[in-house]
């Protein structure tokens, strides 16, 4: 993809807007869930208020901890910072994209995850150990599905960089390859729900620590650290939803205005979709999640073989 000044400006502006409005996503999801449950639910901007409150607070650290606990949220967020620089915000290729940056992207997400796990183990709490153990279990299995999705994108676009992969195929090409798209979308959707700790895998609002995964790992945080974690989770959800959107969107069109509109509209639609999913399904038993992730891997593999054997789509 050629470097274009216009594109970079669009990218930069979309990046800033995304950074600002990403805490809206959990709000939207909660609103949708509340709608389904017939409640009014928390405010749409609730996370902003939470973040503001947390940033003004002090902190309490356990005697047991040794500094890894305090390091973890900072490293996680720094890793996400690396991720956002590679991401094609607003359907404009990132000016910093390079061949193979998709690997860097996936592994920076993994960095944040591992540090969170270490932070949890640092407290010596049995519940946090449990959460950490589950996080590693599910993410290791999700990694396979994620990379198969990436392999699928490489196969149909021929590009190795995240930007070119997600926005590099035109409408014609998209139509040609769209038949296995639902499978890939399904596979990535399951990865998304796992990585973002959403309902069929993990319930962010459960009241029982025994059944938590991500929330169990951050039991011992408070104050600014908690704010960093909450913001990081929202940003990660935004990034993953954006990937899901760009995966199915036949972009880019010629008009940048439409691109941006589609991108942001798509992300919000994705949030509503997640909300609906959370409303209509219950959390799986822990033992069922590995099977679900293997299923995701299966979907992605079928899609990739479909493309390889039939080259098939509608055109």
């Amino acid at each position: 993809m050629k470097f274009e000044f216009n594109h970079s400006i669009i990218w930069g502006i979309s990046l800033l807007i995304s950074l600002l409005i990403c805490p809206l996503l959990p709000g939207i999801i909660n609103k949708v869930k509340a709608f389904f449950a017939g409640r009014r639910g928390p405010r749409l901007l609730q996370l902003y208020y939470d973040l503001g409150k947390l940033l003004c607070k002090g902190a309490v650290f356990s005697h047991t901890t040794s500094g890894v606990l305090q390091l973890a949220p900072v490293v996680s967020l720094a890793g996400l910072g690396g991720c956002i620089l590679l991401f094609p915000f607003g359907c404009a290729a990132s000016p910093l994209a390079f061949t193979g940056d998709v690997i860097l992207f996936a592994y920076l997400l993994a960095l944040g995850r591992v540090l969170t796990v270490l932070g949890a183990l640092d407290t010596g709490s049995s519940f946090e150990g449990m959460g950490a153990s589950r996080e590693i279990e599910f993410s290791a299995l999700a990694e396979g599905a994620l990379f198969t999705v990436i392999a699928f994108l490489i196969l149909i676009t021929g590009h190795f960089s995240l930007s070119d992969m997600l926005i590099g195929f035109e409408t014609n090409q998209w139509l040609r390859f769209c038949a296995p798209m639902p499978l890939i979308f399904g596979a990535f959707g399951l990865v998304l729900l796992t990585e973002a700790c959403r309902v069929p895998v993990d319930d962010p609002e459960t009241h029982l620590e025994l059944t938590m995964i991500h929330e169990a790992m951050i039991l011992d945080y408070g104050g600014p650290d908690m704010a960093l974690i909450e913001y990081g989770a929202a940003l990660k959800l935004w990034l993953l939803s954006s990937i899901a959107v760009l995966l199915v969107l036949p972009v880019p069109g010629s008009s940048m205005f439409w691109n941006i509109l589609l991108y942001f509209g798509g992300v919000f639609l994705m949030a509503i979709l997640i909300g609906i999913t959370e409303s209509v399904t219950a959390r799986f038993r822990m033992l069922k999640v590995p099977r679900m992730l293997t299923g995701a891997l299966g979907f992605a593999l079928i899609a990739i073989l479909w493309i390889r054997i039939f080259r098939g789509g509608l055109l």
Binding site: F61, L77, A78, G223
Partner: peptide, 30 residues
């Protein structure tokens, strides 16, 4: 770049925590 981000966020965190109470306590085990 990731290292620079790390330092920046760490400084931000440091600034936010200065002047506030930072205490030690037991691990919260539910």
């Amino acid at each position: 770049i990731v290292l620079i981000f790390f330092i920046m966020i760490w400084l931000l965190r440091y600034m936010l925590l200065t002047g506030k109470s930072v205490e030690k306590g037991p691990t919260w085990d539910c």
